[in-house]
Design a protein around this nucleic acid. Structure first.
Lengths: 343, 343
DNA sequence: TTGTACGCGTTATCAC
DNA sequence: GTGATAACGCGTACAA
């Protein structure tokens, strides 16, 4: 435990016969310090092995160069890519990124938001837990002028920054694509309707059917809790056991869509001839499964980048914290063999 | 910008006619404060909307409840699961987790290590960048008694905590498995030999061949930089173009192994009859590809949990920071259809 | 251009 | 069981 004593600006001040404030200013490139002095001081700092203490600076400034992330789970392709985008953008600006996962539990989300607040994060990026209804726990950040960016799974009522995709249009287009391929009985794997993303995708699906004069059959709409592989398998079996099974499936995520492909294949169903399938997210598994899965892009890295930028900009704009600024990104359908009937 | 004033222990002290020290002690359940006083103070703190400032506490204590993570990339199945394991364990103990990715660049790794140091992390968890040779940038942490845990991609010489799998045995067993299936010309997709994990896997491969009296053919060993999908494809084509193509491939990761399956299938090769394939990591794509890929487990979540525990324990043990403590986890072969020749 | 002095919010030490 | 005081390292208003 023989820790070397840390070098502070006081040590440099003593060494160079300057005052600590001059050192502080020089290290921060303050305009009132001469270029020459700055050079001398920075050189000495380097030689003496000085390392700034961000903790002290943050305390003093009452804001830290840290972005807190509050998401459901890290180890999902969309989420880890989102985080990656946030981290890259934040780091370039000298910001740290603290992550926390709620595992889709409301309680965890509240607890984690407290810890992040206590760490005095300079901004917060959130994708809501499946369970979350009440969003009062974010008020504390707003009270302190700490910017919040909701990404993907956003609340309907809380005014703040939001970065989303156009889930309605995506759902509409995915369904329309299946219709274009000749599907007439299209099923939908829907996610928890509490979250906007799944609700909007379903709306798009319903409207596309209506628009093309196709009946809406409740038996063909399966609500899944998490759209897991197992749920997808179960749903597929249920659909295929129907007297009139569907000839197309639009799944609100790729995991369930892939399980549908595998499950249907096992039962001897030809894809896409008997059953065309399209997913959502463009996860890596989508292009690996056989036949490759058609899907809808979900620009995770871009969303992460924008979310981080919102927070970085917020300082400069010294913006009003009560306005809602929503960024809507567009998505694209990727047509692969799982739905390509017409060559 | 009308930020509410934050409530501090001074405010509570004034309100209750106690001294700030008593408030501080009460909030930390100090033994010398009566149960009753603690209760009163905590109640008041809650009512007044007090939130502790971890920044101030960390500054004062000269150590923060934060674990820094330094890895190559977040959005890989192994890495995101590793982080998830770290985060869960850390959070239970009240620790935050800061992430930073090097993108396998040495320069980024050095820069990030500095930023994490400046943030006065209480511990560091590292998986080395591909490029990294020199590891001097970790010395600063050791000098300050800050524990470092290297995970998976570890340095050979730096003494500290390490959490790894037995890559040699895994490589040996994977190769032996192919031999058991009747393979006699087994190729190997090897990763960058600078990193222990790939070096050891290759050694296991070589020793298994030798042990079973199989010749080592340099044409069958392909060194890839990143073992990407594209590299795997290229390598597979190269192998299949040989006068005597291999009848088995042991790939040091799943990505390249999956690309081998897809590429070989395209060329009309039967898997596993003509070509048996085994990968490494048990990524989600491994069970999705057709035929499903045999592979070697990589206990990411467990490794993350152990790594975090090492750091959490370190405080209590107030251990010497110069000893090396290596945890080696075992792995298992998962046999799937891509290599199962013998029923 | 540089120095002085104070405070950010907390906790540890010492005293009572 | 509780209070007074200093200190963690830094940044800035004010003074020079």
């Amino acid at each position: 435990m023989n820790q070397k004593k840390e070098v502070t600006i006081y040590d440099i001040a003593r060494e160079l016969n300057y005052s600590p404030s001059t050192i502080s200013r020089a290290l921060n490139d303050h305009k009132s310090i001469s270029k020459k002095t700055i050079k001398v001081i920075k050189k000495a700092a380097l030689e003496m092995g000085y390392r700034p203490n961000s903790l002290a600076a943050s305390l003093r400034n009452n804001r830290s160069n840290t972005i807190g992330i509050l998401i459901s789970r890290i180890n999902r392709p969309f989420m880890s890519t989102l985080i990656s985008g946030i981290e890259e953008t934040a780091r370039k600006a000298g910001f740290n990124v603290i992550i926390s996962q709620s595992n889709d539990s409301y309680e965890n989300e509240v607890d984690n938001s407290k810890v992040l607040y206590d760490s005095r994060v300079g901004g917060l990026i959130v994708s809501l837990a499946m369970e979350t209804r009440n969003i009062e726990h974010f008020q504390q950040f707003r009270d302190q002028g700490i910017p919040i960016v909701f990404v993907d799974r956003v609340p309907k009522t809380f005014s703040s920054y939001k970065v989303v995709i156009d889930n309605y249009t995506a759902g509409y287009n995915a369904t329309k694509h299946l219709i274009d391929q000749g599907c007439r009985r299209i099923a939908h794997f829907a996610g928890a309707q509490r979250r906007n993303i799944y609700e909007d995708r379903k709306k798009g699906y319903l409207d596309a059917l209506s628009e093309y004069g196709l009946p809406i059959d409740k038996d063909l709409i399966i609500h899944a809790k998490t759209l897991s592989f197992e749920e997808g398998e179960k749903a597929t079996n249920k659909l295929l056991d129907l007297p009139h099974p569907p000839d197309g499936i639009f799944s609100a995520n790729d995991t369930a869509a892939v399980s549908a492909i595998i499950c249907a294949k096992k039962r001897g169903i030809n894809i896409p001839e008997d059953l065309a399938i399209i997913g959502f997210n463009d996860d890596p598994i989508a292009s690996i499964v056989d036949p490759p899965l058609s899907t809808v892009t979900h620009p995770a890295a871009k969303m992460g980048k924008i979310a981080a930028q919102r927070i970085l900009e917020h300082d400069q704009k010294n913006a009003d914290n009560n306005l809602s600024e929503v960024t809507v990104l567009s998505t694209e359908i990727i047509v692969r063999a799982s739905s390509k009937r017409i060559k």
